[in-house]
Simulated scan of single mutants.
Amino acid sequence: MRHSMSTPKSSKKTYKVIFHNQGEVFEVFVRGVYQSDMYGFIEVEEYLFGERSSLLVDPSEEKLKNTFDGVKRSYIPMHSIIRIDEVEKEGAGKISAASGDKVMPFPMPPAPAK
């Protein structure tokens, strides 16, 4: 059973999801955030991006648009999630470098000996 962190789609809530991805920190805006049936994952769907008609183009937002172009739903490992906020309205997504001295990975148990 899928446990929704949002209410039915008629309310159109917006969430800002910040997570680690391959040495970078992604900040995206989405309509749906759910606890996944796959253990240890969060589902995010309905990505929101700013208008393309703007004269100024943010390279990190363009990279996000290209990365998630055609993606219906993403499964993000729980330990990669930094924060999920319900926000009033969408903003500009961005990608920033993960700062090694400020971000600690979630502690994981050592791998079992073979």
Rank of each mutant, 00 (worst) to 15 (best):
K94L: 05
M1E: 11
F68N: 05
L64F: 07
V17I: 05
A92P: 09
L48T: 12
Q35L: 13
D101A: 11
R31E: 08
K114D: 15
P107A: 10
E45G: 02
D58S: 12
V28G: 02
Y47C: 08
V44K: 13
P8I: 08
I81P: 04
P8H: 09
V44T: 15
E45D: 02
Y34N: 15
D58K: 12
H3F: 09
E24K: 12
R52L: 03
K114G: 13
P59I: 02
K12R: 11
K94N: 15
A92Y: 08
E86Y: 10
K9R: 14
K114P: 15
K9S: 13
Y34V: 07
E27S: 12
K65L: 04
T67I: 06
E88N: 06
M108E: 07
P105K: 01
S74M: 00
V28D: 05
E45C: 04
S99R: 03
A98W: 10
R2Y: 13
K9M: 04
I82A: 04
E88Q: 13
E46Q: 09
D85T: 00
G32P: 09
L56I: 07
V25E: 00
E45L: 00
H79F: 01
K102V: 11
A92W: 03
S53K: 09
E88I: 10
F29N: 08
S53H: 01
I81L: 05
Q35M: 11
T7F: 11
K114L: 14
L64W: 01
S36A: 14
E51Y: 02
K12V: 09
E46R: 04
F68A: 04
L55E: 12
E88F: 03
K13R: 15
F41T: 12
P107H: 01
G70H: 04
P59N: 10
R73K: 04
K9A: 12
P109Q: 03
S74G: 02
G50H: 11
P107C: 00
H79P: 14
G70Q: 13
E62P: 04
G91K: 01
Y39S: 14
E43W: 14
R31D: 04
E51W: 01
L56F: 09
S99F: 05
S96D: 11
Q35P: 11
R73W: 03
T67F: 13
S60I: 07
H3G: 03
S36I: 04
A111E: 14
L55F: 14
